[in-house]
């Protein structure tokens, strides 16, 4: 086990290093420089331009800039945004909880409903319920989520008035950002009704972002359940006279959770891509919108380090999933 862990860890370092090189190169390949974008429409003479470039350290040769960047990373310094002057870490930590809260809500929704639907579909294999559910899940999997978000917003929020149009909470609630998670902060604030209001704001974006993971998890759970139900020990359990519900939920589900775990890992990247679109539609103040805007503004430190932080997150989540997977299923550990 230890050897497996070390081997996996050893693979992380070069990947991380590669990500720094890739983001550094990508942002510098984009035409236009941050000073031009910053100055906008105003006239900028070449000397002022050169001075501004020097102030930002962009007059150095590229390899120097890269080494300086790595040195900065070693010291744990993520630099300051060119646009706002705020430290990248501070901006990331204010925006990331919003994305994380949305993503967690989406995954929770997808996990609970997806597993439930998958189990039922497997138990009632080939029934009309199974067919409809699988049809729906393939539709969900095929959904252009920006369109789905717009449609739900216009139907549910604007048309029916069931949920708020956008934002994280009614701004008349004065919520101190202790954790950055609105659901937690609203509970801490002791303002009447704030928690429910935050929940109402969260529900629609979470449904939109959770649609694809929900579809994937439902399908995976169904097929995993089908496999498990064929296994000998289930038959044995049934033969021993255990109640069907107990067989399914205690024996079957535990094993069926393995693929669901994989999906969690696989979906982190997809979820973050989806978050970019969901955040755009619901004016959700998260990192997706922040990064897209930073690319447009050529805000080098934000793009480099913001993407780096996300990549680190993806790598870590996948690593953790690998480990859990190895723990749960020893066959895989040895196969590698």
């Amino acid at each position: 086990m230890l050897a497996f862990l070390l081997r996996r860890l050893g693979l992380l370092l070069p990947t991380f290093f590669g990500v720094t090189l890739l983001t550094f190169a990508l942002i510098r390949l984009i035409p236009g420089d941050p000073v031009e974008v910053m100055m906008g429409e105003r006239h900028l003479d070449p000397q002022a331009h050169a001075e501004a470039m020097q102030r930002l350290g962009l007059d150095q040769p590229l390899h120097r800039q890269y080494l300086a960047y790595l040195g900065q990373l070693m010291r744990g310094d993520l630099g300051q945004s060119f646009r706002s002057g705020e430290s990248v870490w501070a901006e990331f930590t204010t925006l990331f909880p919003a994305t994380l809260e949305l993503a967690c809500a989406a995954l929770l929704l997808a996990g609970v409903l997806g597993v439930l639907a998958g189990v039922i579909a497997a138990l009632k294999r080939d029934s009309w319920f199974d067919r409809v559910l699988m049809g729906l899940s393939l539709t969900g999997y095929s959904m252009p989520i920006f369109w789905w978000g717009l449609m739900l917003q216009i139907l549910v929020s604007v048309g029916l008035g069931w949920t708020p149009v956008s934002g994280r909470i009614d701004l008349l609630y004065d919520i101190e950002p202790h954790t950055g998670f609105m659901l937690v902060d609203s509970l801490l604030s002791e303002e009447d009704g704030a928690f429910l209001d935050a929940l109402r704001h969260l529900i629609l974006p979470a449904i939109v972002l959770g649609t694809i993971p929900l579809a994937v998890i439902a399908r995976m759970t169904r097929s995993a359940m089908l496999e498990v139900l064929r296994e000998d020990y289930i038959r044995t359990a049934r033969a021993k006279g255990l109640s069907p519900a107990r067989v399914v939920f205690v024996h079957g589900l535990r094993n069926a959770l393995i693929p669901v775990l994989t999906v969690f890992g696989l979906q982190v990247g997809t979820l973050l891509s989806g978050a970019v679109l969901t955040e755009t539609i619901f004016s959700w103040p998260g990192i997706g919108k922040w990064l897209i805007e930073s690319i447009a503004a050529r805000d080098y430190p934000v793009v480099q380090n913001g993407i780096l932080l996300i990549a680190a997150l993806v790598i870590l989540v996948n690593f953790t999933v690998d480990l859990l997977y190895g723990l749960v299923n020893p066959r895989i550990r040895h196969a590698r």
Binding site: L113, L116, I120, V156, L196, D197, I203
Partner: peptide, 24 residues
Amino acid sequence: MLHPLPLLALLPALLLGGQALAAR
């Protein structure tokens, strides 16, 4: 057997309680 669809339909109803605050 549990049916997920009515549950889904219940959610908005649960959340409907809140109204826009108004403060002068």
